[in-house]
């Protein structure tokens, strides 16, 4: 029981990070029908940006309050990563928009390789640790065997920040004109242009939003694990993509739900079975779900009108 509650907490934390990344995949897929394979590396890049600015703020500028430092780091990481997201779309995807379907996909793989190699060269190939940031824990209750069920402050920060940013994001997509334009472009880009919507700009803003949510995930990842390396974009990226597919690609609540499910499967499998096979478990569940629900959990099945 104690282990179950503890793993539930851990799984939800990990799942919210996956969910944040998954939104970037699902939004871009929704609006231009392309899998942005570079998104995982954008996430990794944002973790590096967060690391660098955390060190600058704490050691050079001497901000002693970790929470304050994290707040600034989060904002800086979101802004800079958004710029990267915007630039990637502008340079690598937009020129290929009129091209055949696979062209932007290949370009995305290229960007992914570029980003991980760029970070490897610029920051070195070794794991980069941060000084421990938030270490306090709250002991929720103590089990009979002496096992403490703990909720750490950083887990609280991660879940709260995720929840707040997801609600802002949800508001943007559902209630603002930008969100309506995005949904309109998803359905019929040419018609949206005929109503005066600048489709290219809307797509750019989609990339910016996706990248800034990835930056939140990157900062939270750094806070959680305290270490980041140049190839950390790949596995979380693939898992977040899996989460997006599992939840139904194109569906925003689906992406978050898929992220939480993947996070929970992974932690529970590690706790009760074997930690070496945790990725196998996550991807097997994906395969099983897709066999029985090909459009994902919350995805709309494609109806062909005749």
């Amino acid at each position: 029981m104690e282990i179950f509650v503890q793993q539930l907490i851990n799984g939800l934390t990990l799942g919210s990070i996956y969910g944040l990344i998954a939104i970037g995949y699902t939004m871009v897929f929704g609006i231009i029908g392309m899998v942005n394979f570079a998104h995982g590396d954008v996430f990794m890049l944002s973790a590096f940006i967060a690391l660098i600015f955390f060190l600058i703020l704490t050691t050079w500028l001497g901000i002693s309050s970790v929470v304050l430092a994290l707040f600034f780091v989060l904002i800086i990481a979101m802004v800079l990563t958004s710029l990267w997201g915007w630039a990637i779309e502008r340079i690598a995807y937009r020129p290929l928009r009129g091209s055949f379907r696979l062209a932007p996909l290949i370009s995305a793989i290229g960007v992914s390789i570029f980003l991980s190699n760029f970070v490897q060269v610029a920051q070195g190939a070794r794991n980069k640790p941060t000084p421990p940031m938030v270490q306090d824990v709250i002991v929720l209750f103590q089990g009979e065997s002496g096992y403490n069920v703990a909720l750490s402050y950083k887990q609280i920060i991660i879940m709260v920040v995720t929840a707040v940013l997801l609600s802002i994001f949800w508001y943007v997509v559902q209630k603002t004109s930008l969100g309506r334009a995005q949904r309109a472009c998803e359905q019929d880009r040419k018609m949206a242009a005929l109503l005066g919507i600048n489709v290219d700009r809307t797509i750019s803003l989609t990339f910016v939003i996706g990248a800034s949510l990835a930056a939140v995930a990157g900062t939270m990842y750094l806070l959680y694990y305290g270490v980041v390396s140049f190839n950390d974009g790949f596995v979380p990226g693939v898992k977040a993509f899996t989460a997006a597919v599992l939840g139904g690609i194109g569906s925003l609540p689906g992406a978050v739900l898929g992220g939480l499910i993947i996070g929970l499967i992974e932690t529970f499998w590690s706790a009760y079975f074997s930690i070496e096979y945790k990725d196998v478990a996550a991807f097997s569940i994906l395969a099983i779900v897709l066999i029985f629900m090909p459009s994902g959990i919350l995805g709309r099945p494609e109806v062909e009108k005749v």
Binding site: T176, S177, G196, L205
Partner: peptide, 15 residues
Amino acid sequence: LVAQHNPLMIASGFT
């Protein structure tokens, strides 16, 4: 409302 996107975008300072 989608058809009134541009005035709304300007009014909301690009959201």
